[in-house]
Each structure stands twice: as C-alpha cells, then as structure tokens.
Design a binder for these strands. Structure first.
Length: 582
DNA sequence: GCTTTGTGCCAC
DNA sequence: AAACGTGGCACAAAGC
C-alpha cells in the first residue's frame, strides 16, 4: 500500500497523512503521524520492515538521499512528480480529472537534485539587497497536496484504457528513481591516478593553469608551420583557423572531423589529432577530474525521464557520454569486480516485440539479430542489416539505409509497418505511445505554424515544402519515440529486477564500515547508459551477479511482452576496469 | 560585464 | 555540410 511522506511548512515531517487505506500503525491511531526529521530514517526502517509500503512522495530526490545517508534503503516507491508528468500526457488517461485540470504546481516542479537537500536550499545564502523585496514564502495553495495528487493519479490510472500497463509504467519509473538516487549515493568507482596516467600518456604532464599541455602545444606549432601561419594563430579560434586554412588553399568549409577527413592536405593529420586531444583535455581532462571525482567516486545526477521518450539524461560530468578513452579509469575496488552488461540490439528487438513481428523476432532468436536478418535472406550483409534497421527506426531517407528499406519492409511487414504508422501519425500532428503507455507530446509551435502558413491564402513560395519538411521531421520523432521509449521501459524493468535480485543476495561478509551502508556492502548498480549497466560486486560473486543480470533481462522481456518469443541476450563481462569489457 | 548562440564531438 | 533519432557539454563568438 501507499504510505505518504510530506513536509509541513515548518519543516516537520508528516507520515501517512490522508493516505487512503493508511496502514495501521503509521500514526498513533492509524492516521497521520508527525516525525522529527532526525528520526525519519529509523522510523522509515521500522515501517519498511513491518509493512513494506510503497513510499509515496512528491520527488524521490527530496527524500531518498537523506534516507540513504541514514543507512536506510527502501524497496518500493511512488514518485508523484514523475507519475504526474506521465499521466498528464498519456492518451490512456486523457479524459481523467488529472489530465483535464488546468496546470498546477505539479506541472511546474523541476526535478530535485540528489546532492542537494531541501534544507540546503533553504539555508543557502540569499542574494538580497536592501532594495529587493523579500522572497515571498510559497502560498499555501501552491504547496503540492500529496494526498490529493495520489488520489487523482490512482483514479486516472483506474479509469484509463490500460490500467495494468500504466500501473506498471509508474512503478517502473519510480523504481528507476530509487536506482538513480542509489547510484548517485554509491558513485562510480574512479581511479584518479589511472585517469591522470591516461591523460599524461597522450597530452604530456598536467600543465600549469591556463597553459596548453605540451602535446597540444607541439601540434599547434605544427599546424601553424604547415599553414605558413604566424605564431599568433590560435587553433582554438574557428574563424582565424578557417581563414588561415583558406589562405593556404586547404579547401575546407568547416572544421568538422568528417569533412577534414575527406581532404588531402598535410595540415589535416595534425589538426585532427589536435582536435581529438583538445576534446579529451577540455571535456574529460584534469579539470573534469577535479570537479567530478571525489574520494574515488564519480557522482553524476541522473535525471529520470529527462528525455521526452522516457530515457534518462544526466547532468554533471557528462556521465552518459563517458568517452571510451577514459573508461580505463573506472575500476573496481580491491577484491571487487565490475560486472558490465549490455543488451544486444535492444531497439530492434523491442520493435519486433511491440509489433508482434514473429519473423523479426525469429531473426533474433539465436544471437546477433543482424546476422539473423542476413541468415533469413532479407539482406546480404550484417552491416547492411544494421544500417537498414537503424534507418527504419530513425527515419533515414538516404544512402544504403534507404536502399535496403524495401527489402526489410517485405521481410518484416509488421515491424516496418508499425514504425511507418508512427511516422504518419506524427506527420499529421498526432501523438503516439510506447508499449506501456507513455505518450509523445503534441507537436509544438513550429509544426502548427508551418502547417497553417501553408494553408494561408497566397501562401509564400516554399511554404508548402516547409510545411512538408516540418511534418516529416516530427514524423521522424514519433517514429523513433515508440521504439526508443519502449526500449527505455525495458531498461527500467531490467534495472528494477537487477536491483531487487542484487539486494536479495544479502550482505557480503565484509566487515561493517564506519558509515552505515544501506546497500553498498553487497553487489549494487553503479552505472547505467540506456542499454548497459555496471554492477560493482565482491569478486567472489561475479558469476552469481552475471547470472542475476541475465535472469533480470529475461524477466524484463517476459513482464513486458509475455509469451511473445522475443529474446534479449546480453553481453556480460566481469572485469577490473570498465574498458576491459568488450 | 553578462547571457545567448553557434560549432563541434561524445554517448546510446 | 548533412544524411537519420535522443541527449550533455565546452568553448569562442556574437549579442545586449
């Protein structure tokens, strides 16, 4: 059952207030109870053990980090902010009171940051002068009413066109919020010394502040010499560099890597190397290390549902774009291993399942799905199968991808038909939904303006083609939305299952640490990127953990797609360093 | 001086 | 100078 957590304006914690079916014992008489914030972890731990409730709160990051800090892990949650966002847009709940109500504070809530508690925010020094009006305290009416919101959400789900799927989606989204907070708490093991060695090997030793590393300096000189440019030429200035290149007759219109690679000129090699190393230095160099790695852990802020499709985004340190070149610095603690697992060809498999395309699922039944497509005779090569499938899911219209599309459409009419339908719906301005019912946003101003101006009397030349182009672009978005979004749902289920299974393994025999460890004394998730997870585990449990991660993938497929014969094979490796995997 | 925009590359 | 989806981020240049 749901157990609500809320705060009074004075900061005291209210437990179970207004919860429908409040469990006996939450408060003295089965109703609301007031808890001193300092006692919250202990109180939550007791209730978790006794009643195993679904902890229901406005935003997981407002509550869970402090509980984790107090050594308390919870099993289930309901994140009202995340659920609200889903239900407001979902086609399945379009007629509900929740979806038809005017926008409320729930619609304007920004995700809280796990590293920043509300108390920190309140205590933060306020920039105010004598002339500034004091910041007004939030009016009572603006305070989100958690009990009313929960009731509205449960009502919307119950009256929806597919209550089971939506309930599942909300549970998965909330489980994701728990995972995200726990991964932030645990951090990704990061060897600063190894990272520094990686940088030093290719850039030279860390330079003085404000100076280029030696290798970059040498390359800059080489670029200047090759271009016959003065020492004042700054290779970081695009206009200056392009001008110097034009003067030297290089013939490049931009500084993009792919374009430079097409050019035959002696400056290309040193310039490409410069750009490559410059990127490493600025994006993941020593400054990055100083800023984001603390005490052997990299902590980012995972933003659950940060992408419209339901994928996560992250803020801080570019966690979801960690370049391969620094992944060697991600290393397990002594006596531990990293179990790295990624789902092979996740999106095409998801597409096959949601379209109930048995032929396509069959192509993925033995292992590599692209090889399976080749084996079925649809296309000649793995590479062609891959670019063809990606083109189908992205809406590619050119090149090899477009060329094989007709053959894929003949071999897999159901799957290809589904993404085509999604594209057509988007072009018309309609919305599409994922397998569990997350719905795409309606098209925005650009689409509407383009379509209406094409219909105007005396429409400008090009208005019609502009309208078509905008419509197609939105069609590519909706086409991709259904696949990417459903893949994100699979990933949420996968992680929720992994989380539960790892917890069930029980604590390691390791001696208790000084700080309370809510879960880091047993195998735990430390990283996630769309279709890939990393588990930090005691070395002795490597095989057990690998098996659980595989079992979780099967479970996720079964929970989402039932008996439909689609497989979700993984690549799994237990390694010391992240870059040892594959 | 500040913020916004453009460029380009990284990840899936 | 992108084709073909979703993002984050750093830097220089442009705008205010």
């Amino acid at each position: 059952m749901h157990l609500l957590l809320d705060r009074d304006p004075d900061g005291s914690v209210v437990l179970g207030a207004g919860t429908t079916g409040t469990p006996a014992g939450a408060g003295p008489d089965g109703g609301a109870a007031r808890v001193d914030p300092g006692d919250l972890p202990a109180t939550v731990a007791d209730l978790e053990a006794d009643q195993h409730p679904r902890w229901t709160w406005g935003d997981t990051n407002d509550w869970y980090p402090a509980l984790l800090g107090g050594g308390v892990r919870v099993d289930r949650a309901h994140d009202l902010r995340l659920a609200h966002r889903i239900l407001r847009l979902a086609s399945g709940t379009a007629t509900s009171a929740l979806a038809t109500a005017p926008p409320s504070t729930w619609d304007s809530l920004a995700p809280a940051l796990a590293g920043v508690t509300r108390a920190d925010t309140v205590r933060a020094p306020q920039a105010e002068s004598l002339f500034d009006a004091p910041t007004p305290a939030p009016r009572d009416a603006d305070r989100p009413d958690v009990a009313a919101e929960l009731a509205a959400q449960l009502d919307a789900v119950a009256g929806s066109t597919a209550p089971g799927r939506l309930r599942f989606l909300l549970a998965a989204e909330s489980a994701g919020a728990l995972v995200a907070a726990e991964m932030h708490h645990a951090g990704l093991p990061w060897r600063t010394d190894v990272h520094d060695a990686i940088l030093t090997a290719v850039l030279g030793p860390r330079p003085a502040e404000g100076r280029r590393p030696a290798r970059l300096e040498a390359l800059a000189d080489q670029i200047r010499t090759t271009l016959d440019a003065p020492p004042s030429l700054n290779p970081d200035s695009h206009p200056d560099l392009l001008r110097a290149m034009e003067y030297a007759g290089v013939g490049a219109r931009s500084l993009r890597k792919w374009e430079l690679e097409l050019i035959d000129h002696p400056v290309v090699a040193p310039l490409l190397e410069y750009k490559n190393l410059y990127r490493l230095w600025t994006a993941n160099g020593w400054h990055w290390l100083d800023r984001w790695v603390d005490d052997g852990r990299f902590r980012t802020e995972y933003v659950v549902g940060g992408v419209v499709t339901g994928r996560w985004s992250s803020t801080g340190g570019g966690a979801l774009q960690l370049p391969r070149s620094v992944r060697g610095a991600v290393q397990a603690d002594p006596g531990w291993v990293l179990v790295v697992a990624d789902a092979a060809q996740l999106e095409p498999r998801v597409l096959a399942a949601m379209a109930h395309d048995e032929s396509m699922a069959e192509a993925g039944s033995t292992g590599d799905m692209y090889e399976g497509i080749v084996a079925s005779g649809a296309v000649e090569s793995r590479e062609l199968a891959k670019v063809g499938m990606l083109g189908a899911m992205y809406g590619g219209t050119t090149g090899a991808s477009a060329q094989v599309l007709p053959r894929l459409a003949r071999a897999y009419p159901r799957a290809m038909g589904m993404v085509e339908d999604a594209a057509r719906t988007g072009e018309r301005g309609g919305v599409v939904s994922t397998w569990l019912g997350r719905t795409s946003p309606p098209p925005g101003q650009e689409w509407t303006a383009a379509q209406s101006s094409a219909l105007d009397d005396g429409a400008a030349d090009g208005a019609a083609s502009q309208a078509r182009s905008t419509a197609r672009s939105w069609g590519r978005f909706t086409r991709n939305f259904v696949v990417q979004g459903t893949a994100a749902e699979w990933a949420l289920c996968w992680m929720a299952s992994i989380r539960r299974r790892l917890w069930a393994l029980g604590p390691d025999a390791a001696p208790p640490g000084l700080a309370p460890a809510p879960f880091t004394d047993r195998p735990h998730l430390v990283f996630f990127v769309h279709d890939e997870v990393v588990v930090h585990a005691p070395a002795a449990l490597a095989d057990v953990v690998a098996a659980e991660v595989r079992a979780a993938a099967e479970e996720a497929g079964r929970l989402l797609f039932g008996d439909f014969p689609v497989r979700f094979p993984l690549t799994v490796a237990a390694v010391q360093a992240y870059d040892d995997a594959k």
